[in-house]
């Protein structure tokens, strides 16, 4: 299931509702993305971390967002037929540091499909879902630049043509 919404969500309640306790599912893998309070690339020296973020605004392309996320879910289900269920919740609009932005859940009988599908979904979402982040700091707002490391993370899921 795909949900795109402005409203905050409760990750614990969402994961509990998603979790099939019938005995059919043996694994639920989750990824929760939160708003950071600072700018800077992964691994950057914290002393160099730039201005504190006051709010983050996520713009999206209504219609195309849902369409791309559904395609993503279809692709995950095709790659991992053992997947029992998928949930992607992504927020848009203005949010504060610490607030959840995105939740990805994948369920399967055994852990491998759930873990791999969860990683695939967030990696592909980051490079394909039409969302744009704007950070507002005391010095003003700025659009977040796309990162090569995100492209590299998504590329590891690209299958060879012969596959």
């Amino acid at each position: 299931m795909i949900r795109v919404q402005a409203e905050p969500f409760d990750p614990g309640a969402e994961i509990a509702a998603f979790t099939d306790t019938s005995g059919r599912v043996g694994a639920v893998a989750t990824f929760l993305g939160l708003v950071r309070d600072h700018q800077g690339a992964p691994g950057e020296d914290p002393a160099r971390v730039q201005a504190r973020i006051q709010t983050m605004t996520l713009e999206h392309y209504p219609g195309m967002t849902e369409r791309q996320l559904r395609t993503l879910e279809d692709e995950a289900r095709a790659r991992w037929p053992a997947l029992a269920d998928v949930l992607v919740i992504h927020r848009h609009g203005r949010m504060a540091p610490g607030e959840p932005i995105v939740l990805v859940c994948a369920a399967s009988a055994h852990r491998a499909a759930a873990l791999d599908a969860c990683a695939f979904l967030i990696d592909w979402l980051k490079t394909r879902a039409p969302f744009w982040k704007r950070e507002d700091t005391a010095e003003g707002g700025r659009w977040v630049e796309a990162r090569d490391s995100d492209d590299a993370a998504a590329a590891r899921w690209t299958r060879p043509e012969s596959d």
């Binding site: 992504h90 394909r128 039409p130 969302f131 744009w132 659009w143």
Partner: peptide, 25 residues
């Protein structure tokens, strides 16, 4: 609402969107 490269023909497209590389997630 489907990604298109610069050399793609416009064809019969009714809605065209331009934007920076995406930064969601």
């Amino acid at each position: 609402q489907d990604y298109a490269t610069a050399d793609a023909p416009l064809g019969t497209a009714r809605e065209v969107a331009f934007f920076p590389p995406v930064t969601g997630g």
